[in-house]
């Protein structure tokens, strides 16, 4: 498949995941309205579109779409990374990148970190197996246990992952807009700014929850 199309796959799947992340972040923020709000929201997700769909039907649809996106995103990334490696078989003895932002340069390793975190995250807060509380449906308690000051290493892992996501999104949003051909000389600067603001808001939204728990604000 041509590289341009692989990039398009990455842009579209990235956009799907990004849409999910935004909704996920908004859901997370329910924690500030108390345990009932968060647990209620979690329950609502499972009953969404009932009875047209069975219980958790919508959730599974979302999960399948996300899984497909994740796989496509990763496969395309691997193919492109391999091509990039083959395109420069001999490396420079002396080369400092001048332009590429830190975000742009860390897309690949950042992606790996995010993927590993997602696995942990699912085992922690979705399956509950790695959660110190681990009661299904008791989302608020699980989160509170996770980010308790004594359980600081989970918080740290979460913070690192979210910041990595922030960087990934910052370059990813700009890159996707360029890939689908939306940027031009006039809009380029605005699009880059948009990507930055978007990434910062998303990161802040996700970080709010663990920090609030750790510092006892909720």
């Amino acid at each position: 498949m041509p590289s341009v199309l692989l990039k398009y796959v990455m842009a579209v799947t990235g956009a799907i995941m990004l849409l999910y992340l935004v909704l996920h972040m908004i859901g997370n923020l329910k924690i500030f309205f108390g345990p009932e709000a968060l647990d209620g929201y979690s329950e609502w997700l499972r009953t969404l579109l009932e009875p047209a769909l069975p219980r958790t039907g919508m959730l599974w649809i979302v999960r399948v779409v996300l899984a497909v996106s994740v796989v496509a995103h990763i496969v395309a990334a691997i193919v492109l990374a391999r091509r990039a490696r083959a395109a420069r078989p001999v490396r420079y003895a002396h080369r400092q990148p001048v332009q590429g932002s830190y975000a742009a340069r860390t897309m690949r390793w950042g992606g790996v970190i995010i993927a590993l975190f997602v696995v942990y995250h699912l085992l922690d807060l979705t399956a509950g197996t790695l959660n110190p509380n681990g009661v299904p449906g008791a989302v608020y308690d699980n989160v509170a246990a996770d980010f308790a000051p004594s359980h600081w290493y989970a918080t740290l892992a979460y913070v690192i992952a979210v910041v990595t996501v922030g960087f990934h999104v910052r370059h990813g949003v700009w890159s996707a807009l360029q890939t689908i051909g939306l940027s031009n000389a006039a809009t380029q600067h605005a699009l880059k700014t948009f990507a930055l603001v978007f990434a910062v808001l998303l990161t802040a939204g996700f970080l709010a929850v663990p920090f609030a728990v750790t510092f006892g604000l909720v």
């Binding site: 590289s3 990039k7 492109l80 091509r83 395109a87």
Partner: peptide
Amino acid sequence: MVAQHDAEGFGGCTNTGE
């Protein structure tokens, strides 16, 4: 041209701007 670009073994763009 895109097909030839890939066939020559050039990598894909990641929009780094370098």
